[in-house]
Amino acid sequence: MTMRTRFRPDHQLTTRMLVTVFLLGLVYVAFIVALILLIKSVVVVVLIAGGLLFTQFWFSDRIALYAMRARIVTPEEEPHLHGMIDRLCATADMPKPRVAVADMELPNAFAAGRSTRRAVLCVTTGLTRRLDTGELEGVLAHELSHVAHRDVVVMTVASFLGVVAGLIARFAFYSTLFGGGRRDRDGGQVFLLILAVMAVSAAVYAISFLLIRALSRYRELAADRAGAQLTGHPSALASALTKVSGDIARIPTRDLRAAEAFNAFFFAPALSPGFSLSSLMSTHPTLRQRLDQLAALSTELGEVS
């Protein structure tokens, strides 16, 4: 599933992506069958599921850029950023993605897009202000690894099931609130049907949530490893991780919550400091795990401090 680049093939990442997509596919089929049996309308279920899948897959890059208030920038507007990405893409022998910048204080970066040809790499102004050239290069190599290994596309498709299940569960919940006053026989049957749909959707959401989080944590370690190998400077990426993670902890909680929906795609998760269910089920491995891996890789490459 890796396109031909100088990024080393990561067979463990490929295997994990295939297994996750296969398991999510089984859950998705069971979910659709259950909805058809409960709602008794194949057309309605297919239209809803198919429409949402098409929208998320085809317009994922535009949705991400719009939500992050980011814009595509030209080499004339951001020559330093484009120059680094040009050099990294030449080193990796891969197509250059579109480049975008989000004007926000949150220091972060992400890659999005339905294919390697339609990929976009976005950085925030908060990130570029905080990092030196070597650190920023490490972050960009990390994001380019996601594009090269196609895990951005896999995560976009994989997250679809959770999105659909979550939307249906929420719709069913509100239906019980506003439609629960009917006491006749038909009203009681409708109420039970809505509860059944909500239960199935909630179960599917929970399963997909756990599978995607497990894949996401591994893909971040894989991208750290591949990005550091491409630049040859694991210590620069480790320094960037330390800076970004420390500064994110100082970002107002309100701003972090607004960005949490994109945690699975961010370089570092937008999480408040301290233990919480969010940190337990994080889309990313712990900072210590990432730094330990980079320290070991630095020793392996014989990097001079």
Rank of each mutant, 00 (worst) to 15 (best):
Thr74Val: 05
Arg217Leu: 01
Ala49Cys: 14
Ser282Gln: 05
His146Leu: 08
Met104Tyr: 02
Met104Val: 10
Leu211Glu: 05
Asp186His: 12
Leu211Asp: 02
Gly274Phe: 05
Leu131Ile: 01
Ser159Arg: 10
Glu303Val: 09
Glu300Cys: 01
Asp186Phe: 13
Leu136Asn: 07
Leu26Trp: 13
Phe171Trp: 14
Leu81Ala: 13
Arg6Ser: 15
Phe31Ile: 09
Leu210Phe: 11
Val19Met: 10
Ala49Val: 15
Leu24Ile: 13
Ile32Phe: 07
Leu26Pro: 05
Pro273Asp: 00
Met68Cys: 10
Pro252Asn: 00
Thr128Ile: 15
Cys122Ala: 15
Pro79Tyr: 04
Thr283Phe: 02
Ala261Met: 07
Glu105Ile: 10
Ala203Gly: 10
Leu136Trp: 07
Ser115Cys: 10
Met68Pro: 00
Ser282Ile: 03
Ser276Leu: 04
Asp61Tyr: 09
His233Ser: 07
Met17Lys: 06
Ile85Asp: 06
Ile39Ser: 03
Gly25Val: 10
Val244Ser: 02
Leu136Arg: 11
Val120Ser: 04
Met104Asn: 09
Tyr174Cys: 07
Arg254Ile: 06
Val99His: 09
Val190Asp: 13
Asp292Arg: 14
Tyr218Cys: 01
Ala158Gln: 04
Gly274Tyr: 07
Leu291Val: 06
Leu301Asp: 03
Leu38Val: 07
Gly274Trp: 05
Glu77Ala: 12
Ala111Ser: 14
Thr124Arg: 04
Ser159Thr: 11
Ala70Gln: 03
Ala228Met: 04
Ala259Asn: 08
Val101Pro: 11
Leu215Thr: 03
Ala169Gln: 08
Met84Asp: 08
Pro234Gly: 07
Leu106Cys: 01
Ala196Met: 12
Leu192Ser: 11
Thr286Arg: 11
Ala295Trp: 03
Leu193Ile: 03
Leu237Phe: 02
Ala70Trp: 02
Met1Arg: 13
Leu291Arg: 15
Val139Tyr: 10
Ile207Gln: 12
Gln229Ser: 12
His233Leu: 05
Pro79His: 03
Thr176Pro: 00
Asp184Leu: 13
Ala270His: 05
His80Asp: 15
Pro285Gln: 07
Tyr66Ile: 05
Arg117Gly: 15
Met155Gly: 14
Gly179Ser: 10
Ser298Gly: 15
Phe7Arg: 09
Val33Phe: 14
Leu215Asp: 03
Ala67Asp: 11
Val42Arg: 02
Glu143Trp: 05
Met155Asp: 12
Pro79Leu: 05
Ala259Phe: 14
Ile72Pro: 01
Ile39Arg: 09
Leu215Trp: 06
Thr125Cys: 08
